[in-house]
Computed example of a mutant assay.
Amino acid sequence: MDSQAHEALRLLIAAYEEHLAAILARRGDADVAVDDAYDSLADAFDRYEAVLDVEYGETLPMLLDDLEMEDAGDGEGDEEDEDDDGLDPHAGEDEDALDDDLDDFQLR
């Protein structure tokens, strides 16, 4: 039985291939096909990560640059959330907390 994650991954790989094909066939700096392929790739990435989160409680070790989408959606300009350091939630722990985890599980 194929999971939704397998299907989302297949669509993500196809979106990467379409993006590369659009880049290789680019007809100038403002080629709409490249922009459309970029948007499709970003959507496929978001879908794949969402499915991973729902099915397995996992995330990916990379983030999309959402500045364009955030600026378009909130009308706030380039203000950044000071709490958002751009890291994956798995990378949000500080070294002291990680050291405590190692001590708790006697991994040293």
Rank of each mutant, 00 (worst) to 15 (best):
A33N: 12
L52E: 01
E95A: 12
V54C: 04
D101Q: 11
L12C: 14
R108P: 06
D101V: 14
P89G: 02
A14S: 08
A8P: 00
E58C: 10
D104K: 09
A44M: 07
D31L: 03
E17Q: 10
D31S: 06
Y16P: 00
G77Q: 09
D83C: 07
A37F: 02
L107W: 04
A5C: 08
D46L: 13
L12Q: 15
S40Q: 10
F105V: 10
D85K: 00
L64P: 06
P61Y: 02
L52I: 01
D29F: 14
D2Y: 11
A37H: 02
L12V: 08
D39L: 06
Y16T: 05
E55T: 06
A22N: 01
V54M: 07
E82R: 09
G28L: 01
G28T: 05
D39W: 04
E68N: 15
D39V: 09
E80G: 14
L67G: 15
G86D: 07
D29P: 11
Y48S: 00
E49P: 00
D94S: 05
E80R: 15
P89N: 07
D71N: 07
V34K: 01
E82H: 05
I23S: 04
G73T: 12
S40P: 02
L107Y: 05
E82V: 00
Y56T: 04
R26D: 14
A97T: 13
E82C: 00
A37C: 02
Y56L: 01
R27C: 10
L24V: 03
A42S: 10
L24D: 14
A50R: 15
R108K: 05
D81P: 08
G57R: 09
D103Y: 12
D46G: 06
D31Y: 04
A44Y: 09
D74Q: 10
A8D: 03
E7V: 04
V54D: 12
R47W: 04
D99K: 15
A15S: 11
A25K: 14
A25L: 03
G86A: 04
D101K: 11
E80I: 15
L11V: 09
S3W: 08
R27F: 01
D66Q: 14
E7P: 01
D2I: 11
A91C: 09
D65G: 07
A22Y: 05
Q106W: 07
L11F: 12
D74I: 15
D81M: 06
A8S: 11
E95V: 09
H19T: 00
D83H: 12
R10A: 06
D35V: 09
A91H: 14
A42P: 01
L98V: 12
A30E: 05
D101P: 00
P61F: 03
D65F: 03
A5P: 02
D99S: 10
V32P: 11
G77C: 04
G92E: 08
L24M: 08
G28A: 06
R10N: 03
D43R: 13
G57L: 04
L98N: 15
D43N: 09
A42E: 10
L67E: 15
D84I: 09
L11C: 10
